[in-house]
Structure formats: structure tokens, C-alpha cells
Nucleic acid binder design. Structure first.
Lengths: 148, 148
DNA sequence: AATACAATGATATTCACTTTCAAGCCATCA
DNA sequence: TGATGGCTTGAAAGTGAATATCATTGTATT
């Protein structure tokens, strides 16, 4: 067991007891699966993953658990405009997204140069920045090769 | 009539005849309304706006026209994660978005410092960048005051 | 163990987007 | 001009992901 993951679990438990909510088997399993993925995911992906292992977890439960993780500050919602709500582990490094307009592939990478400028601009406008998302759209390397 | 808008209309007409599509009254009205707004909009906003003036324009027609504008390269889709698909006039200056997590207000502002970084990012990742979206979330000035 | 109440999960609902299809309109050709 | 073919329209129906419902089950506390 990774030490960071253990900390996140403790954070989640603390959140639950503070709010008078309960630690259930399902929430534990979903959190494990969520932390086990080192990239953004969405409800159905987690649902199918867990469904394969534990046939007793419902779609609605995964949905509610992810929102709960977000409320607890251990997950972050990401929307890339493909109709799905994605979630990624919060607190990690910032992620930027490269979305291919041709094949739809989403590549994630880390970068921080742009972020600083924007956050500063926002502050000048009296806006307290809580999160920043940068999304680049274009044609990925594979699709460029395919097209010649 | 603004000269830029006139050019866009000609561009659209050219696109239509190239594709064997037809110039209709509805498309003309929707394009006028779209160009008349100097900010991003969404289907229902345009629909209601036009509905007030011309009771004969349907929801589906507005929807199809906006997609057509995007295909013609005169509109760009913007998704801010609130469940709505927004459209803005393409070819204008880049827009960044400030979304308030409290009241949901979307503030748009212009900024050009980012443009420089695009080419560099593209080279490094083998990715041809077609568009860049930057979205900041946080608490807007009004909500900060309200909260003390 | 009993109690109170939160959680679950199958199902139903919502909401925006998208498609369908019969009727109407536009551009072209004789 | 008038007819023809096919694109367009708009009301209505369909789609899919997100969200709500509700009876049942599970959890934590007394």
C-alpha cells in the first residue's frame, strides 16, 4: 500500500465522520479503484471495473461516491466536452489535456508555465482562483502520420 | 452593417455553395443574431432571442445552424462543464473564462500572452494545436464580498 | 440488541442534445 | 416562368449521461 494513498483514505474517513456520514464497503472499494488509476476516469469506467470484481456495486453508488470524493477534496471534476464527466485525483500535479480533434484521444501532460500568467491576471480582476484547466485541441502525432 | 460581419457572411455563403447547401432565411437570421452578440452564447439563448422576433424558427434549426457555422469555421464550440454547449465567433481574439464556483457567473476576458507558448508546446509533443482553451474556476469578486 | 438514520441499487426521471420524417422551400434547368 | 430534385424546416420522438426516487439494507451508537 502506497503511503500517499493511505493518507488520502484517512482524509476521507475524517471527512465522513465530520459530516456524520458512514464508511461503507462500497465506498472503500470505489476509493481503492479510483486511487489505483493514475489518470482521469469517469463513472462508467469505474463502474465496469468494479462490476467485474464485485458484482454488487451499482451505477448510482459509483456516481455518488465520486461526487463525495470531490466534496471531500480528494477528487476533481474534469470536463472535456465529450459528454462525460471525468474525475481525477486532486492534490496531485496540475494536468493539461491534449484532445485530438480527429481520433478523440485524450493525452494528459504536466506543464506549469501558462498557469502562472493566467492566475495572476485573474487576481487582478478580483477573482480568487481555485482551479485552472488548460485544454489544447488539435491533431495528434498518430493522426498526422495516418494522413500523410 | 459592420464590415467584418459582412465578410463572415460572404464566407458562409461561399461555404454553402461549395457544399451544395442552401441559403435560407432562417440561416441568415440566426447568423445575424449570432454575430450580433459579442460573447459566447448557447442554443436556447439564440432560440429564445429569435423566437421573440420571428416566431417561425425552431429549436432544431438553431441547433443545426450553429453546428453548420462551426463546420464552416465561423463559430467555435466552447464547453464550460455546466451542461450547455456554447458557441462563440471564431477568428476573433482568444477568450479565457472565469467561472465562479459560487454563483456560476461566467466572465470572459481577453489575453494574448498565451499564444507564444502554443507553438512551443506543439513542437515538443508532436501535436498540431488548433485551439487552446483556458478556464479558471474560483470565487468572483461579488461573491467574496457577500461572504464577508 | 435495539434504534435511528444514512447508504444502496434498481428503476424512473430529467435535461440537453440529436435524429426522424412529412411538408415546405431553394436553386437549377428547360 | 414553371417544373423538378433535393436540401431544409420544425414538431415530435429518441438518445445518453446525469440525477432523483424509494423501499430495502447496512452502519454506528446507545
Amino acid at each position: 500500500m502506497n503511503q500517499t494513498k493511505q493518507k488520502v483514505k484517512e482524509q476521507f474517513h475524517l471527512f465522513l465522520s465530520k459530516k456524520g456520514l458512514k464508511a461503507t464497503l462500497q465506498r472503500s472499494l470505489i476509493l481503492d479503484a479510483f486511487l489505483g488509476l493514475d489518470r482521469s476516469t469517469h463513472i462508467d469506467e469505474l463502474y465496469l471495473l468494479l462490476r467485474g470484481r464485485h458484482s454488487n456495486i451499482g451505477h448510482a453508488t459509483v456516481y455518488r461516491a465520486l461526487r463525495l470524493f470531490a466534496a471531500a477534496g480528494i477528487a476533481r471534476e474534469v470536463n472535456l466536452g465529450d459528454g462525460l464527466t471525468r474525475y481525477e485525483v486532486a492534490g496531485g500535479k496540475r494536468r493539461d489535456y491534449l484532445v485530438c480533434n480527429d481520433c478523440g484521444t485524450v493525452t494528459e501532460f504536466e506543464n506549469s508555465t501558462i498557469a502562472r500568467h493566467q492566475a495572476e491576471l485573474a487576481r487582478n480582476l478580483g477573482f480568487t482562483v481555485q482551479s485552472l484547466k488548460i485544454e489544447l485541441r488539435g491533431i495528434c502525432g498518430n493522426c498526422q502520420e495516418r494522413q500523410g
